[in-house]
């Protein structure tokens, strides 16, 4: 029974969420700060406060909406000794890029879930799993309008630990001390391109509230 429970806990964490709901093709608020409109329907899940949208499955492609306050980390780690990079409100977009890369690197250690299933390691060790930190590459940082706000975007790519190529786009703005960020990523072969146009349409549709 104990094993069954720990397995279910792990599965919940793997999926990042308990279940997916439908996102119809219409305007939708993201938190209380801005809204976006999609031309296609998505499946949505909630990963601890981060909305994740996907069509084919989050292992294949995913669009994530992140909002950070000054001092927040991009991830949270159960490892008390881990020193995770923090977002600071004074950051320039160049520094946001450094923060993004450093955050990915700091959680990509990953632990094999074999140990986890045997109850040897805390479940959080699995979460940032399969990113090969050393292969993260960022290109093309440039200004971009985030609705009516000045913003930025950049392209990134990395390999999973198994060597599968993945790429992504980050698009965001720093507004009133908060980082508003949308991150789209997918496998370089097929799944990133499959819905890239739909994601670009979402990016162009941003309306900042208030």
């Amino acid at each position: 029974m104990k094993r069954m429970t720990s397995i279910l806990i792990v599965l919940v964490l793997i999926g990042g969420c308990t279940h997916y709901t439908a996102v119809p093709a219409q305007r939708r608020a993201i938190g209380s700060l801005y809204s976006v409109k999609s031309n296609v329907a998505w499946s949505q899940a909630d990963e601890g406060g981060i909305q994740v949208w996907t069509i084919d499955g989050p292992l294949l492609q995913a669009l994530r909406f992140v909002t950070l306050n000054d001092g927040d980390t991009l991830f949270r780690s159960y490892d008390k000794d881990a020193k995770l990079p923090r977002f600071r409100a004074h950051m320039t977009p160049n520094e946001v890029v450094e923060f993004f890369v450093a955050s990915l690197k700091s959680v990509s250690g990953g632990v094999d879930t074999h140990q986890l299933a045997k109850g040897m390691v805390h479940p959080a060790g699995i979460r940032a799993g399969s990113i090969n930190a050393a292969t993260i590459d960022v290109k093309n940082l440039r200004p971009a309008d985030f609705g009516r706000l000045p913003g930025f975007r950049f392209d990134f790519s990395f390999l999973s630990k198994e060597g599968l190529e993945r790429q992504g786009i980050a698009f965001g703005s720093i507004h009133e001390g908060k980082l508003l960020l949308m991150v789209y990523s997918g496998t370089r072969e097929y799944y990133f391109d499959k819905h890239k146009q739909d994601v670009e349409a979402i990016f162009s549709s941003v309306e900042v509230m208030k």
């Binding site: 990963e47 981060i50 292992l59 879930t113 799993g129």
Partner: peptide
């Protein structure tokens, strides 16, 4: 609860766990 940007599990563990649950 955690804020998590990417959840990409180690490959064989996914399958072993699916097996275990089933």
């Amino acid at each position: 609860m955690e804020k998590q940007l990417f959840v990409m599990p180690h490959r064989t563990i996914v399958l072993l766990l699916v097996a275990a649950v089933l």
